[in-house]
Structures are given as structure tokens and as C-alpha cells.
Nucleic acid binder design. Structure first.
Length: 199
DNA sequence: GGTATGATTGACT
DNA sequence: GTCAATCATACCA
């Protein structure tokens, strides 16, 4: 089940709060093919997952806490949390009106700053640099210090997809609650996905 | 207070 | 395939 999606925005259009002020499921889908830069490094988003405010799998499901506070900030905010006490994971706060929804960036095709990413990750293979939410944050230097930052201001730059892309929906990964929603989106056939897009 | 559980990764059998 | 790392949060007593 894949669908072709044309770029809805002008080439190299910078994405800000207007883009993120929509249903996180739509935002996640439309982020596939977009470019994410953090500082001097970045690439093309090839995998993302949506988490809604009232979604049992979402950190926001239990209401606002110290950890998830930035999820309840304005759309276009970064939500960075620690996963398994070890890794950082980067989310884009989204949602039309209600707060508490976000999109988890799961994988990138590295495009710029390859050497900086290699140095941070301690390996060479571009296929392993950013394929996974924890790896991606390590490669880009994203940490808890970025939690609550605006996504349309440095060090973040996010640009719209510059051409048509083939996007596939699949179940989310690594969750135990609400596992059936097809809220994981990936670039069909990309070798930079964290997991294959099978059902 | 204690204990179980992760939106993961890398090392190992 | 299995499993440990490592810690904030949730939940129970």
C-alpha cells in the first residue's frame, strides 16, 4: 500500500509552524522526502511516525509531565526525550489545535556533513549513520539540550520535499499499545529505513 | 519506599 | 535469534 505524493510546497520551502499545525499523521506522511539539517549535518527524512495526544502509545497519553512538557508546546517545537536511559529521540511537535501530538523522526538518508556524522557515530557506513531514531540523534548531535527548541530557528532547518515521492504506511515500531495504526511512514525502497516497510 | 517498563541499540550465541 | 546497558517515569505499597 503505497501512495504517490507530489510536493505540495515550492522547492526548498522552509517548513515552520504552519506546516506542523496539522494532524500529526498528515505531518508524518508529508515529512517523507523533506530535508532535515541540524547545524552542519543532515539529510532526507525517509521514515517518521505519528503520535496523537489521545493515543495510548504516545508519551502525552498520561497528560503533561516534566519529560513530555515540550509536547504540549506550540506546533513546530522540538521534543527530545531519552529512550531506554541511553539514546535521544527527536520529535516534531504537531497538531492543529490540541497540543500533545508529535512526529518521531526515525531515519534519515545522510546528505550533508557526512564526516561530522561519521565522527559522532564512530563508523563509516552511511547506511548505519542515521537509520534509527537513536542513531540519527547521535549522528546529528541532537541531545536533551534541544528539547523545546523551535524547529524554524538554528540549529534546525527543515525544507519541504523537492519532488514527488513514493510513501508507504505501516504499523509503528517498538510500541505495545495501539500497535495497529498505520502511522509509520517510509520512503518506498529506501535503503536507509530502520526496518523494512512490511506489514 | 520498591519495582517494572520502555517510541533502542549493539554485542553476542 | 537473545540479552544487557541505563534511567526517567509510572504505578503500587
Amino acid at each position: 500500500m503505497s501512495s504517490r505524493r507530489k510536493c505540495p510546497l515550492p522547492k526548498r520551502s522552509k517548513l515552520g509552524s504552519t506546516f506542523f499545525s496539522r494532524d500529526p499523521v498528515e505531518v508524518a506522511r508529508d515529512l517523507i522526502g523533506a530535508t532535515l539539517i541540524v547545524g552542519q549535518a543532515g539529510g532526507i527524512i525517509v521514515e517518521a511516525e505519528a503520535y496523537r495526544r489521545d493515543d495510548p502509545a504516545s508519551h502525552s497519553f498520561v497528560g503533561q509531565t516534566q519529560r513530555n512538557a515540550s509536547m504540549f508546546g506550540p506546533a513546530g517545537t522540538a521534543y527530545v526525550y531519552r529512550s531506554y536511559g541511553i539514546h535521544w529521540c527527536l520529535n516534531f511537535v504537531s497538531g492543529e489545535q490540541e497540543t500533545g501530538s508529535a512526529v518521531l523522526v526515525r531515519a534519515l538518508e545522510p546528505k550533508v556533513g557526512l564526516n561530522a556524522m561519521r565522527a559522532r557515530r564512530g563508523l563509516d557506513d552511511p547506511h548505519l549513520l542515521c537509520t534509527g531514531p537513536g542513531r540519527l540523534c547521535r549522528a546529528l548531535g541532537v541531545t536533551g539540550e534541544h528539547d523545546g527548541s523551535r524547529l524554524d530557528e538554528p540549529p534546525f532547518e527543515i525544507y519541504a520535499c523537492s519532488g514527488p515521492v513514493e510513501v508507504r504506511a505501516a504499523p509503528r515500531i517498538g510500541i505495545s499499545r495501539a500497535p495497529d495504526h498505520l502511522w509509520r511512514f517510509g520512503l518506498l525502497g529506501s535503503p536507509f529505513l530502520s526496518k523494512r516497510l512490511a506489514f
